[in-house]
Simulated assay, not measured.
Amino acid sequence: APKVAAIGLAVRVAVEAMGLATDQWRQIVIFAALASIIFGAVAAIGQTNVKRLLAYSSINNVGFVLIGLAAGTQEGVAAVLFYLTVYVVMTLGSFIVVLQMKDSEGQPVETIA
């Protein structure tokens, strides 16, 4: 929820408050998007814990949301809102599945192995 609220606030400030200065903030958003995508993907490579893997995936997904913001148009905002809606549903589903995974002894499974 905090991440979705922060993205919503960022979209509103960027498009409504600084809409006329899109060219000035677009490069910063593109850099943040690429950094988030790369960091999330590289950090997830060595993970063996499923919950941490999902956490790095969420870092990666923020980068994809920022790509829509970097467009600086109403279509970009619509794409951000659609992506956030799908992201929230899929993340909730993923964490519910991970929390329901149990081994043969009834212990929670947290490792990929």
Results as ranks from 00 to 15, higher is better:
residue 64 F to R: 09
residue 68 G to H: 09
residue 87 Y to A: 03
residue 27 Q to Y: 11
residue 39 F to N: 08
residue 37 I to R: 06
residue 13 V to R: 08
residue 87 Y to R: 01
residue 29 V to S: 04
residue 12 R to N: 11
residue 38 I to A: 14
residue 33 A to L: 06
residue 61 N to S: 12
residue 21 A to F: 06
residue 58 S to V: 15
residue 63 G to S: 05
residue 50 V to D: 05
residue 95 F to Q: 15
residue 50 V to R: 12
residue 10 A to L: 15
residue 69 L to F: 03
residue 44 A to K: 06
residue 42 V to T: 09
residue 81 L to F: 05
residue 56 Y to D: 02
residue 68 G to W: 05
residue 46 G to K: 04
residue 52 R to V: 03
residue 31 F to K: 07
residue 67 I to V: 01
residue 32 A to T: 12
residue 97 V to D: 10
residue 20 L to Y: 06
residue 99 L to D: 09
residue 72 G to Y: 05
residue 20 L to V: 12
residue 79 A to Y: 09
residue 30 I to P: 08
residue 90 M to N: 04
residue 30 I to E: 10
residue 32 A to H: 14
residue 59 I to C: 11
residue 93 G to L: 09
residue 92 L to G: 14
residue 96 I to Q: 15
residue 28 I to A: 09
residue 26 R to N: 12
residue 35 A to K: 08
residue 49 N to M: 03
residue 55 A to D: 04
residue 80 V to H: 14
residue 87 Y to K: 06
residue 12 R to G: 10
residue 45 I to H: 00
residue 62 V to C: 10
residue 91 T to W: 01
residue 60 N to L: 09
residue 83 Y to G: 08
residue 87 Y to P: 05
residue 95 F to M: 14
residue 51 K to D: 05
residue 47 Q to I: 03
residue 94 S to D: 13
residue 53 L to E: 04
residue 78 A to Y: 05
residue 8 G to W: 06
residue 36 S to K: 13
residue 68 G to K: 07
residue 37 I to S: 11
residue 17 A to Q: 12
residue 75 E to D: 11
residue 66 L to P: 01
residue 69 L to P: 06
residue 22 T to D: 10
residue 84 L to M: 12
residue 15 V to C: 04
residue 70 A to P: 05
residue 66 L to H: 13
residue 39 F to T: 13
residue 63 G to A: 12
residue 5 A to D: 02
residue 64 F to K: 02
residue 100 Q to D: 13
residue 61 N to F: 13
residue 18 M to D: 07
residue 31 F to V: 12
residue 98 V to N: 04
residue 28 I to N: 13
residue 44 A to T: 07
residue 44 A to P: 00
residue 21 A to Y: 09
residue 48 T to C: 02
residue 48 T to Y: 11
residue 71 A to M: 12
residue 99 L to K: 15
residue 66 L to C: 03
residue 101 M to E: 13
residue 88 V to W: 13
residue 91 T to Q: 02
residue 66 L to V: 08
residue 55 A to S: 06
residue 18 M to I: 10
residue 23 D to G: 06
residue 84 L to N: 14
residue 20 L to W: 03
residue 12 R to E: 07
residue 56 Y to W: 07
residue 73 T to R: 11
residue 11 V to K: 10
residue 16 E to C: 03
residue 100 Q to E: 10
residue 65 V to N: 04
residue 17 A to H: 11
residue 81 L to V: 15
residue 20 L to C: 01
residue 65 V to I: 08
residue 59 I to E: 00
residue 25 W to L: 03
residue 84 L to H: 12
residue 76 G to W: 11
residue 92 L to T: 05
residue 17 A to V: 12
residue 26 R to H: 13
residue 36 S to E: 00
residue 34 L to S: 00
residue 70 A to S: 04
residue 36 S to A: 11
residue 83 Y to R: 01
residue 38 I to Q: 02
residue 55 A to E: 00
residue 85 T to A: 07
residue 42 V to K: 02
residue 28 I to F: 13
residue 20 L to R: 07
residue 5 A to F: 01
residue 23 D to L: 04
residue 91 T to Y: 02
residue 21 A to P: 01
residue 54 L to P: 14
residue 77 V to R: 10
residue 27 Q to K: 02
residue 39 F to V: 07
residue 11 V to I: 09
residue 36 S to Y: 14
residue 39 F to Q: 00
residue 81 L to Q: 13
residue 15 V to Q: 10
residue 58 S to L: 13
residue 7 I to M: 15
residue 33 A to H: 04
residue 87 Y to V: 06
residue 89 V to Q: 15
